[in-house]
């Protein structure tokens, strides 16, 4: 069996992997765009494009809200996202065991 096949192409980007890691440990909590930006040390545009890829794959949910007049966009992980991320981790693990 070749374990590489189970690796999720979408998580090959370090930023998308980072977003999923943050949302994974903050289940049931909304994480704001600014928190993500600060944690991952990326630019607005870069983060936004990766977030939309994850959203298109239904791995994350987007909630648009307001704090006063400022928009406050927050993100949370979906069941599908959780499953995909766990699958990716399992594949990484299998991969490392396979190579040993």
């Amino acid at each position: 069996m070749n374990p590489i096949g189970n690796l999720n192409k979408i998580f090959e980007s370090r930023i998308r992997l980072g977003v999923m890691s943050v949302l994974m440990v903050n289940v049931n909590e909304e994480v704001s765009f600014n928190d993500l930006k600060e944690l991952l040390e990326v630019t607005d545009g870069n983060l936004a494009s990766h977030l939309s890829t994850l959203e298109e794959n239904a791995y994350i949910k987007v909630h648009k809200g307001f704090i006063g007049r400022k928009t406050n966009t927050t993100y949370s992980i979906t069941k599908a996202g959780e499953k995909a991320f766990k699958g990716h981790l399992a594949a990484l693990e299998a991969m490392i065991k396979f190579n040993q």
Binding site: R14, S21, M24, N26, D35, L39
Partner: peptide, 10 residues
Amino acid sequence: DIKRIMERST
């Protein structure tokens, strides 16, 4: 990366 980011975000 995953481990570091998970730790830093919590």
